Simulated assay, not measured.
Amino acid sequence: MDASSPLTALPVLLLGTILLVIVIGITWAGMRIRMKAAGRARAAAGRAEDVDEEEDANGAIVSAVLGLLALLLGFTFALAVNRFETRRALVLEEANAIGTAYLQTQVLPQPHRERLSMLLISYTDNRVVLAQQETPESRRQRLADNDRIVNDIWAATLAGFDSIKHLDMSNALVSSVNAVIDMDTSRKAGRMTHVPEEVFWVLIVYVLVAAAIIGYIVRSRSNFHLACVMHVLIVMSLMLIIDIDRPAAGGIRESQYPMELLSASMHAQPRAAYDRWRTPVAPPPME
């Protein structure tokens, strides 16, 4: 969604409050218009049969309007949740890719081993913090750090590859690091994929039109209060969908637990622990 759009710029709670006030106001205006129309109808002394037929027609209209609204909300909710599940799956895939690259990095000789290992740790820590940033400024800074570390990781991989290119697993190391870089792009794309903004605008317009129809049918203050309760539930559902569709600023975000677990493991496990059963390589003979 466009960053300048109210659907993106405004906090979800404020956006929901504004929409709820407008919806209730439209319902109240519709009720007042209906009351005036009913007064004119009583003055015209309409028949009771006509009134009953009108009530039946109004009930059918309300059922159709609310049924279609529920269908639209359910369809939009499914789109938002599908994107949320995709982002959550990408977190686990990225954690696995980084973990594999980190383990394969341990076959490198020094200083390539330590350099690439530390870069992968820094990259993981930055990814965890990046997913928790609230302000656009902090996200831009973290994204810049992310891109810089990615470039450093690839440069360190190329430098380390020259020292093991005679080994069979040299290509596996390059492939694993390349998978990490691919996951970086995949997660960025996943966070930039939203439910089309036009869908939300159509939903909002539909909610406003439904509020006007319901307000026109409402006849008493008690029914108006019940209609307000229904509007609260509808607006809450719409705001929930919008919040899920805000991966960087919403309250509902994909869990970073796999990345946090990986970061803790890499920090706790020293690189020297992987050498405890390795046979030291003899230095080349002196000529």
Rank of each mutant, 00 (worst) to 15 (best):
N178K: 08
I164L: 07
D162I: 03
L208G: 09
F161N: 06
T193N: 14
P247Q: 04
K188A: 13
A156I: 00
A212M: 10
V195W: 15
M236E: 10
A159E: 09
D147Y: 13
N178W: 03
I242E: 10
R187H: 05
H225T: 07
L233Q: 12
R148K: 02
G215W: 06
A248F: 01
S237H: 07
D182R: 06
G160C: 00
K188T: 10
G190P: 12
A248W: 02
L233R: 07
E197L: 13
S237G: 13
M169V: 13
M169Y: 14
V235D: 06
W154H: 02
I234S: 00
V150E: 15
I217N: 14
M230D: 06
N171E: 12
Y216V: 05
V209P: 00
I181T: 10
I153Y: 01
I234F: 04
G160A: 03
M169G: 07
N178Y: 04
V180N: 01
C228R: 02
S220M: 12
R148S: 03
G190V: 09
I149H: 12
N171K: 11
S175M: 14
A248P: 00
P196S: 13
M183K: 10
L240G: 15
K165S: 09
V235Y: 04
S186Y: 05
D243W: 06
H194D: 15
M230C: 06
I153D: 07
D243R: 11
R219G: 10
Y216G: 00
L203R: 00
F224M: 14
P247A: 03
C228I: 05
A211F: 04
F224D: 02
V177Q: 00
I153A: 07
H194Y: 15
M230H: 09
G215K: 08
A155I: 06
A248D: 01
A155V: 06
L173C: 02
L233S: 09
M192R: 10
L203N: 11
L233T: 12
A212L: 11
N151E: 14
H166W: 08
H194A: 15
N223V: 12
V150C: 15
D182V: 09
N223E: 15
S175T: 13
V209N: 01
S237I: 08
K188P: 05
R246S: 11
M239E: 14
A212W: 09
R221Y: 09
M239D: 01
A155P: 06
Y216A: 15
